[in-house]
Design a binder for these strands. Structure first.
Lengths: 160, 160
DNA sequence: CACGATTATTTATAGATATGCAAAAATGTT
DNA sequence: AACATTTTTGCATATCTATAAATAATCGTG
């Protein structure tokens, strides 16, 4: 229980199994396991492990491990272009706070899924049928803004 | 560009599209977009949005959004929201006369059915997809009123 | 519109985290 | 082993973030 690798493993284990809210807490847990280090070192360890701190649902904060592929993708930032929507897009039109996207039969669900995934700011939500997507627009966004955002994931839309 | 919801959306958009390393930076970007707030408020916003701060691969720190269900599950640790598991309800948000209710996949139909059954005064109609319900609100009902009525049949909604 | 209740915000500050620098270990090289 | 090189660490502190308390704004209802 002496070298750095062991310590890193211990940190991962503790964070995975307990709700740790700050470094002092974690330091105590580590000390209880025979690891003697300072907050400065722990800060560097957490940086190296890419541990993240976020709000928990109970109002406190909690450290989390980057264990999921999705999370990893996010931590690397800039990931948008990886998977663009295959073509299936047919048309888009608007009525007040609703956009209606027509697709080729069967494509609505997939495209709606992709739109949802991207969490575009003007998009409150989507509902898909077989060849139609209803998209609810957030307040204070123009139709044009919606279109612009959608174009980042549905390039075919640009030529319209 | 004035209310809190707009600001939260702006924060999400900025974080999704830029590499933000601390709150002062984000504050400047928000100010450039016409949002005037203090670091204290921003800290609370980030807490509410469950934005996480983690190390980036280039040695700096970066804020990330909890955009994936997987990530959300992680942030909640092992105490996976029993509420949601039980009812299927995930979230509710509004845009003018539409309420959008997010559910766990497959639950939308069931919950929409329950809502219809109750004939709540503010509810004109519902349409359900797989994990989303669009609820059309009758005129002269506030968002808050809708929420209160729904809470009578979806108690889990209260914690939001 | 006025009042009570809730939500949002600021200020001031406490609390938590990151880091420059120097020292100490560890590792590698001849 | 002696020396150079790289890695790890602690100390002290700067930087960054969260929050209590007070105030302001907003909402819902009579």
């Amino acid at each position: 229980m002496k070298n750095k690798q062991n310590r890193l493993n211990a940190i991962k284990f503790i964070i995975a199994n307990e709700r740790i809210g700050n470094q002092e807490e974690l330091l105590k847990r580590l000390y209880a396991q025979g690891f003697d280090l300072t907050q400065a070192t722990l800060s560097r360890d957490l940086k190296q492990l890419k541990v993240a701190k976020t709000a928990a649902s109970d109002g406190s904060y909690i450290y989390i491990l980057p264990s999921s592929p999705l999370y990893k993708r996010i931590t690397k930032g800039k990931l948008v272009h990886e998977d663009q929507v295959r073509s299936g897009f047919v048309s888009i039109s608007f009525s007040a706070n609703i956009a209606v996207i027509k697709t080729r039969p069967g494509y609505a669900g997939g495209i709606a899924y992709d739109i949802d995934e991207h969490d575009l700011p003007p998009v409150l939500a989507t509902v898909a049928g077989d060849d139609t997507i209803l998209l609810v627009i957030r307040e204070n966004y123009t139709h044009h803004a919606v279109k612009q955002h959608l174009e980042t994931i549905i390039p075919e839309m640009k030529i319209m």
